[in-house]
Computed example of a mutant assay.
Amino acid sequence: MVNAILGMGRDLPQRLNAIEARLRDLSTQPILLHASTGQDGGQGLSTDKNGLHLFDPTGAESVTLSTIDGSANFNGNVNINGNLSVPNGSISNAALQAPVSPLAAHADASAFALYTGANVELARITVTVPAGFTKAAISATAIMNARNTTGSLDSAYLTCTINGAGNGWSAQVDAAAGNVAHLTKVITGILNPVGSTFYITAAASSGLATWTVDSAKALNLDAMILFYR
Rank of each mutant, 00 (worst) to 15 (best):
G7L: 13
G168V: 07
T134S: 12
V2K: 06
N220Y: 11
V173D: 14
T197L: 03
L54R: 00
V129L: 01
M144T: 02
K135Y: 00
M224I: 07
A146L: 01
I5H: 06
P193A: 05
G195Q: 06
T67L: 10
G70A: 03
G9I: 15
L12F: 14
A35P: 07
S205K: 00
G82R: 13
V78T: 15
L221G: 03
K135S: 09
L33W: 13
A177G: 15
G189K: 01
A175F: 00
N77A: 14
A165M: 10
I143F: 08
N192K: 07
A203P: 08
L54M: 11
F198A: 07
E20L: 12
G164H: 06
L54T: 08
S46P: 01
A136V: 05
M144W: 06
S152Y: 01
Q43H: 04
S71V: 06
A109L: 01
I225D: 06
F133H: 06
D69R: 03
S92N: 08
S196I: 03
T188L: 02
A98L: 10
G178F: 02
P130A: 02
A137Q: 08
N50Y: 13
A175V: 15
N119G: 07
V129F: 02
Y115N: 12
A98E: 12
G44N: 15
I80H: 06
L153C: 01
V186K: 13
G168W: 10
A94P: 00
F112C: 00
T126L: 12
V78D: 10
Q97G: 02
